[in-house]
C-alpha cells in the first residue's frame, strides 16, 4: 500500500518535471517563432482586439469598484488616526504597487487567458492546427506567437487602466462623497507615490504577469487533449495555474522591489 502510494507520488513528480520541461521548451519555441508576429503586425493587432479590447469593460468596472472600496475602507481606518488627508496616498499606493497589477492580471487570466486556452484547444480538437501544419505553415508562428505578444502588450496597459480607474473611484468616494479635502488628497498622493519606485515597478510586475498568464494559457491550450473534456479541463487549469503563478510571482517581485524599507 505504502509502496503503491510512493510509486504514484514518484510518478506524479516525474510527470510534473517532464511537463515543466515541455512547457519551457514550448515557451522558447514561441520566442523563437515570434518574428512573424511583428513582421505581420496585423496578426498581433487582431489578437490585441480579442485579448485587450474585449477585457476593457471588466477591467474598467472592476478598477473603479476596487478604488471605491479602498476609498471607503481607507477612510474608515485613517479616520481613527486623524490622518484622512493621507487617503489619496493610501489608495494610489495600494493600487499602483499591488492591486492594479495583481487584480488586473487575475481578471485577465480568467477573461482572456481562459478564452485563449479554449480557442487553441478547440483549434487542436477540430484539427485546425494539424491542417495548418499540413499546409506547411507553422502554427506556433501563425497562431500562438501573435496571441502571446498581444497578451504581453495588453497586460501593462490594462493594469495602468485599472489603477487609473481605481484612483478615480477612490477620488469619487473620498473627495466627492465623503468630503476629504481635494487638495490634500492629490498632494498627499503625489508626495507618497514615487514614479520610478512605485509606478515603474508596478508596470514591471504587470509585464511579468502578462508573460506568465499568456504563456500558461497558450501552453495549456496547445497541450490540451483534443476532446471536449480535455479542453474544458485545460481551461480550468489555465485559470487555477495562472492565478497561483500571479500571486507567487507577486510575492517574489515584491520581495525584490520593495525590500529594505
Amino acid at each position: 500500500m505504502i509502496v503503491e502510494n510512493l510509486r504514484s507520488l514518484g510518478h506524479r513528480i516525474v510527470s510534473a518535471v517532464w511537463r515543466i520541461g515541455y512547457a519551457s521548451r514550448f515557451f522558447m519555441m514561441i520566442l523563437f517563432y515570434s518574428g512573424t508576429s511583428f513582421r505581420r503586425f496585423h496578426l498581433t493587432i487582431k489578437e490585441l482586439f480579442s485579448s485587450g479590447v474585449m477585457s476593457l469593460i471588466i477591467i474598467l468596472v472592476a478598477g473603479t469598484f476596487v478604488g471605491m472600496v479602498l476609498g471607503l475602507q481607507g477612510y474608515e481606518t485613517l479616520k481613527r488616526y486623524g490622518a484622512e488627508s493621507a487617503l489619496g496616498s493610501l489608495v494610489a499606493l495600494s493600487l499602483v504597487r499591488e492591486l492594479g497589477p495583481v487584480l488586473a492580471a487575475l481578471l485577465f487570466a480568467s477573461r482572456a487567458g481562459s478564452a485563449m486556452t479554449a480557442e487553441i484547444g478547440l483549434m487542436k480538437a477540430t484539427e485546425q492546427i494539424s491542417a495548418m501544419e499540413m499546409m506547411a505553415i507553422n502554427p506556433l508562428a501563425r497562431v500562438v506567437a501573435p496571441r502571446f505578444w498581444a497578451g504581453v502588450i495588453s497586460m501593462p496597459l490594462l493594469s495602468a487602466l485599472f489603477s487609473a480607474m481605481g484612483v478615480f473611484g477612490g477620488y469619487v468616494v473620498g473627495v466627492v462623497l465623503i468630503g476629504v479635502d481635494e487638495g490634500s488628497f492629490w498632494s498627499q498622493m503625489q508626495a507618497g507615490v514615487d514614479f520610478q519606485h512605485d509606478i515603474v515597478n508596478g508596470m514591471i510586475k504587470s509585464f511579468v504577469f502578462g508573460v506568465a498568464v499568456t504563456a500558461i494559457a497558450l501552453f495549456e491550450g496547445y497541450d490540451a487533449p483534443p476532446t471536449a473534456e480535455g479542453v474544458s479541463g485545460a481551461t480550468t487549469r489555465t485559470v487555477v495555474e495562472s492565478s497561483l503563478t500571479i500571486l507567487f510571482l507577486d510575492f517574489i517581485l515584491t520581495a525584490f522591489m520593495f525590500q529594505g524599507e
Partner: peptide, 21 residues
C-alpha cells in the same frame, strides 16, 4: 524540405478543419 514537400500536398481533414475565426 518537409515544408516544401507539404506545400505540394493537400489534405482534407475528417470534418474539414476550416479555420473557424
Amino acid at each position: 524540405g518537409l515544408y516544401d514537400m507539404r506545400r505540394r500536398m493537400g489534405m482534407l481533414f475528417q470534418f474539414g478543419a476550416l479555420f473557424t475565426d
